[in-house]
Design a binder for these strands. Structure first.
Lengths: 95, 95
DNA sequence: ACTATAGGCAAGTGACAGCTTGCCTATCAA
DNA sequence: TTGATAGGCAAGCTGTCACTTGCCTATAGT
């Protein structure tokens, strides 16, 4: 669970999630091109690849292999619980 | 906004928020004691102090000075928007 | 005034994160 | 088969992070 927060802590990874939220099923090269053109992210291919590994390890990105292409998909299910961890717990609650 | 994610990326800071969610208005020393007894966090006073600075800079903790005591309060308002950034955005939306 | 308590400031250290570089594998088209 | 494309592996570098250490300030009690 801490992996999700660490994954979200980097601005480049947040841009990757932004991009995958707009358009799913993108390859590594497609993501690289769109990061540079739309978000002015100048990271290399290997850097983006390592970010995608981390996002996949955190459960935020799922991958699907097809021939020599590897498509990446966003998975928002880990995000749906994390914020409520502290929001729901009010002070002076004593069961 | 990225400060919020970076603040949440550290397990000790998440424990601090857990503790402040349970009991508000705690001093630095109170937080230190409770971190060690309840969460087995062995950080020093200065380490916890630096974590609280970071949490305050991220807007997750508010402080109030009273004499030589400084009370810390959790503020969950930054958390209420962050997760929805990617959850709300569905693919194939084209305005 | 003096001592203890609550907290702050700043330099230093060890470890890890993000990134690059270079080379390698696998798939597809010609 | 050959060349080009998509991606992976691994070592190395650099900056940042979490933490410690030592000293300092300020408030409260006696």
């Amino acid at each position: 669970m801490g992996d999700v927060f660490k994954a979200l802590a980097d601005p480049t990874r947040r841009h990757i999630l932004d991009e995958l939220a707009e358009r799913d099923d993108q390859t590594l090269f497609e993501i690289c091109v769109r990061l540079t053109t739309k978000y002015q992210v100048t990271s290399s291919r290997q850097a983006v690849s390592q970010h995608l590994e981390l996002l996949e390890a955190a459960g935020l990105v799922r991958t699907r292999r097809e021939g020599r292409y590897k498509f990446h998909t966003i998975d928002t299910s880990p995000l749906e619980q994390i914020a409520e961890r502290w929001i729901r717990t009010k002070p002076q609650e004593n069961p």
